[in-house]
């Protein structure tokens, strides 16, 4: 009699366990099918690759002050500045960056450069797909960093800073 009761209890336990399994069978999978489907949106604070933003009139925001270079904890930024001239006005300040390089492999995406920038030129974007076959390819130069048109990085080109 006792053994029968034990058997019944054990069978019920198995069914109980299998019920959990079957319940999961009919739930949608949690997997994000990454290359085809991406997670809807990254967090608003997410920091991805950098962009050098432009004013709405197409002028560069970067004034070549090199504050981002100073603040960068991993020394990933290189800026070479030059003077603006009336014939060759690139930014709205006295100087502009002739060369601007960011080593995306060095960068730890802390966003200090974005905080330090007095004109809001450098912003960290949404893109996180950064991989390459060589180290050199991950040093982004100024043409790669400058947004293709004002507002392309997702930041309002009319903003103050």
């Amino acid at each position: 009699m006792t053994t029968l009761r034990v058997r019944i209890r054990q069978s019920l336990a198995i069914l109980k366990g299998l019920a959990v399994t079957f319940r999961y069978l009919f739930r949608p999978p949690v997997t994000v099918r990454y290359p085809e489907v991406k997670r809807a949106a990254v967090q608003p604070r997410f920091k991805g690759r950098h962009w050098l933003t432009l004013y709405a009139d197409g002028m560069e925001r970067c004034v070549g002050c090199e504050l981002c270079v100073i603040v960068c904890p991993s020394q990933a930024i290189y800026v070479r500045a030059a003077e603006n001239t009336p014939e060759h006005q690139v930014s709205k300040g006295e100087r502009y960056a002739t060369d601007f390089q960011i080593n995306e492999l060095r960068c730890i995406f802390c966003g200090f450069c974005e905080e330090a920038c007095p004109t809001g030129a450098i912003v960290l974007g949404r893109e996180y797909e950064l991989a390459s076959f060589s180290r050199d390819a991950m040093i982004y130069t100024k043409p790669m960093l400058t947004e293709p048109y004002p507002g392309a990085s997702g930041r309002d080109p009319q903003r103050e800073v």
Partner: peptide
């Protein structure tokens, strides 16, 4: 393959993996 990020998101690692 070098994957950038500190640390890279799992998607970024998968991107490097696909590369």
């Amino acid at each position: 393959v070098y994957v950038a990020g500190c640390p890279p998101r799992p998607e970024a690692l998968l991107y490097g993996f696909l590369k």
